[in-house]
Design a protein around this nucleic acid. Structure first.
Lengths: 192, 192
DNA sequence: GTCTATAGTGCGATAGAC
DNA sequence: GTCTATCGCACTATAGAC
């Protein structure tokens, strides 16, 4: 019998999502999650700084996709073009096969305010990382901050739309349409 | 001796900010805050659903200002003009006299991730309320959602700038400049 | 791995306002 | 009498310290 198996974090994450979905987030203790994969509560908290965090590992990859997209864009791209490339790159992390899993996870998050709070926080960290990446590409202030925040905003709205029951478009398509709508919205009438 | 006095929430809020600022947020217990104004821990939690919330009452007024601004705008206003009016209305809640108090509060929030999380959540609620208000004025999707989110985004960035040590402009002025920058950013080059 | 402080809840009792 | 603010106590889970 092996003393421990690889992929501990992943097994904890999967078990947590299962239990949260069936019993509810607050009705599931960290100890129960750990026990369900043969570990102790203490081990759970060694892998995740708090109980909510078990649902949010993977956000680092998302941030990397955004930042990597910015870095890989053409040298003469405008700030909003950089945002567009970043969004396209990020969308690759969410192929249609992943939709049902994302929907399950989102239904758990949607039922608990504390989890929604954590989700917003992660989006905010993403926005800051995007702004940093834009600044590193020479985008000046306040454009870098606004464009970085806009990228996270478009992703967030698009992701929510992507998960809707009646939605069939890809995440990338939804993002592109929203980005165009944002351009039309803010650029339409230059009032002063 | 009277059993209880009016303004309990306000006294708890003031005491909490004092204690958080001097000892730190985590080093201050809910019981200590309550005791400092002659109440018990249990009463603290009757007024605030959790310990963080004591720093975030007043956000309702902010939301009301935004929503009220939208409702009071001219009938023929574009979505972004509605956003501009809402921002102007909200800025009235933050005259320069309030800057030092806001800076103290922000320094407490800035030192604790859990408090930053709550702040982001409140901004997100604000964004949703703005989107609802825009929809109620007949703004279609996805413009209503994007404009509502943009309003909260501009407020958030502007508020952070307003609190900087070297900043002297009014919140309203900063917001107007950011809104103009956002127009220039997204509207400048209609790439497709 | 154990031990502990604290956040937060549930329920019942009390005291004053009306 | 009703209604509401406060208190007191027992309790669990989280999360961090040792």
């Amino acid at each position: 019998m092996v003393r421990w198996q690889p992929g501990t974090s992943e097994r904890l994450q999967a078990a947590a999502l299962d239990l949260f979905a069936s019993r509810g987030y607050e009705q599931t203790t960290a100890a129960e999650i750990a026990q369900s994969v043969g570990l102790t509560e203490r081990t759970f908290f060694r892998h995740f700084s708090d109980k909510r965090e078990v649902l949010f590992h993977g956000q680092e990859q998302l941030t990397e996709a955004f930042v990597g997209g910015v870095a890989a864009a053409p040298a003469d791209a405008t700030p909003m073009e950089l945002v567009g490339v970043a969004l396209d790159t990020a969308a690759e992390l969410f192929p249609d096969e992943r939709r049902s899993h994302s929907r399950l996870r989102q239904s758990v998050i949607g039922q608990n305010p504390a989890l929604q709070e954590r989700e917003r926080h992660k989006m905010s960290v993403l926005a800051s990382a995007m702004s940093d990446a834009l600044r590193a590409r020479g985008v000046a202030e306040p454009a870098a901050t606004l464009a970085g925040q806009s990228a996270a905003m478009v992703f967030g709205v698009a992701f929510g739309q992507w998960l809707r029951d009646d939605e069939e478009r890809s995440l990338a398509d939804i993002q592109r349409e929203l980005l165009a709508a944002l351009r039309g919205l803010t650029g339409a009438s230059p009032t002063g």
